[in-house]
Nucleic acid binder design. Structure first.
Lengths: 204, 204
DNA sequence: CGTGAGTTTCTAGCATTGCTAGCGACAGGA
DNA sequence: TCCTGTCGCTAGCAATGCTAGAAACTCACG
């Protein structure tokens, strides 16, 4: 019976860990939803606790602090972005670079709070190191794949960083109302042509 | 005598207005200095009041709220940026585009808190409208002047927005440790060549 | 069927934040 | 010399992130 008891203990622990993991995800989802609905200023520990129907200290048993919650949201957001970019791959008609650019900017426009957590707020996520979360690597990998056809002789990863920087600049300056909304298409055209044409030049 | 008295009143009011304006600027300078020294999180109304040697409510007699102070810092920061860009104009050797890009990125790197207030935080400054502060127009004008030699057939203002977006993206992603620091030069080379070469292509 | 140990969750509170009401002091005109 | 209006300060409010310590619950054991 001792083995039976031990087994039952283990299984109970499993259940607890599972419930704990579910609650962990519940907190992340609630934080993201609240941020997307009312902005990150509305994401206070009190409102978040109320939304998940637990008291504040429970949040701190899962995350070191509020910033850790934002970080978790950001990392999962990178997974979302990677998926959205991958879905935009098989765009017939337009170039792969353009498809990726449009998908990226649509993500930034449609989910501004999430984008903010991912790339604007100072969340201190390891980016270049070995323990960079897989979600981030996936998202960047999608950008690399989109740039690859136009890279030519140029260093692929560096060119992708330039591509990403341009997209990020357009996304954030647009959100801050610092660019003329009416010229969105024209800007994207110019940016994409610049990045692509340079390659043709280099080949000749 | 009545005219003398009136004159004296006017002059006293002038002095008061002058002192008030000086204190106004004192607050802005203190906020900027504190932010540059310890980051915007350290800029609390209490610390700021202590630094200017007045009580908190004085701040609110000059500005509607903390956000208005940040906005004032940001606008004056645009003046600083415009001056720095203008100073970088007569760069012999390198192209004007490169000189502007390097000056811009140096500004963002050397004065990160100021740059944050100007272009990252949501400060709600009117950008495209008629009452856009002159400092902003000046700064953008400097970028336009730097882009002009390579614009070719392309729309100058739109191309400048793309140029700015790329610089802004590089600046913010670099600050957030999201780009490989070792490849800074290479990124800038690629970006500038892309923006310039496209023009040659178009001319041919 | 209790009972006690161990874990989990909550109540209550701290220090700090942006902001403001309302009092007191002071200068200038009569 | 008093009166008036401006000016700046003290003191306090509500909200924030976070935490200590009490309370409640779970579950193996007698």
């Amino acid at each position: 019976m001792s083995s039976g008891a031990r087994f039952s203990v283990v299984t109970i622990q499993n259940r607890r860990e599972r419930e704990r993991a579910e609650r962990h995800q519940l907190i992340i989802d609630a934080a993201r939803d609240l941020a997307e609905a009312e902005g990150w200023d509305a994401v206070t520990t009190r409102r978040l606790a109320e939304k998940v129907e637990y008291s504040q200290p429970v949040l701190y048993s899962h995350f070191k602090g509020k910033e850790a919650i934002v970080r978790a949201v950001a990392i999962q957001g990178c997974g979302d972005l990677a998926r959205q970019l991958r879905k935009a791959r098989p765009a017939q008609g337009k170039s792969r670079l353009r498809a990726a650019a449009e998908a990226y900017l649509e993500f930034a426009r449609e989910r501004p709070a999430l984008y903010d957590a991912m790339f604007v707020q100072e969340v201190d996520i390891p980016f270049g190191t070995d323990d960079t979360p897989a979600e981030l690597r996936d998202a960047f990998g999608e950008l690399v794949a989109a740039v690859e056809p136009v890279a030519g002789q140029r260093d692929l990863e560096t060119l992708t960083e330039v591509f990403w920087s341009t997209l990020h600049g357009i996304a954030t300056l647009t959100k801050g109302k610092r660019l003329r909304p009416s010229h969105h298409e024209a800007r994207l055209d110019l940016a994409l042509r610049a990045l692509s044409l340079a390659e043709q030049e280099e080949r000749s």
